[in-house]
Design a protein around this nucleic acid. Sequence first.
DNA 1: TCTTATACATTAGATTCTTATGTATATATT
DNA 2: AATATATACATAAGAATCTAATGTATAAGA
Lengths: 112, 112
Amino acid sequence: MGNQKLYKGSLQTIILKLLETNDKMYGYEITQKVKELTKGELKITEGALYPALHKLEADGLLDVEVAKVGNRLRKYYKLTESGSKETANKLAEMQEFLKTMQHLVNPKFSLE
Amino acid sequence: MGNQKLYKGSLQTIILKLLETNDKMYGYEITQKVKELTKGELKITEGALYPALHKLEADGLLDVEVAKVGNRLRKYYKLTESGSKETANKLAEMQEFLKTMQHLVNPKFSLE
DNA sequence: TCTTATACATTAGATTCTTATGTATATATT
DNA sequence: AATATATACATAAGAATCTAATGTATAAGA
């Protein structure tokens, strides 16, 4: 860690990608999944996650479905049709960004 | 473009890397070099660049040397010793970030 | 002459995050 | 039984980093 600030701007894309892969997820599950996939390198905070989910929902990219598990509340999010398209766009932009940065910081081992 | 916001947080690293490669550069030159290297994908604005350079200098990572070319002013920046070390750190963090993001958004084509 | 390029700089406002705080239930530990 | 940790949601203040706009001034090109 220590490079958390590099992730600034990529949270929406991460959420959308996870929902594309896993069909439906709830907030807490997303934080745990990201921690697991990044081996603890990236920890999504609630202060970042929940506003992001609310914004994606407000923008019509996600649908929400409330479920009760035991006595506890869960909000399952899934991609809308529009959300699936936007996910493809954002993933393409991310790939381009990663390629460009790779090239910038290390021209020798550029990906192409 | 359209993915400009993904670059948020990486400007310092980009500047340091350029100065590692090119020994000394002035602000305007940096904006042009980045535009060239990224084929126009990333355009560094003055409002981002100059405050960033001033901060790196204030933090002791850069030395500045004013030059007069014709009747025009140029401020050449170069890495201090401390700046060289920090560049190595930031580049390592960047590589880790890029690897992690690559893994997150496209596990199939992970870099390792 | 007028536009574009070069070269510096600051400021208002937007976005996106971290840190702190709050509420509540469930499980594990002592 | 008491306490700590995990699960699960949420908001709000403040920090950091950027974009877009504006400003000053010289040089070069049409």
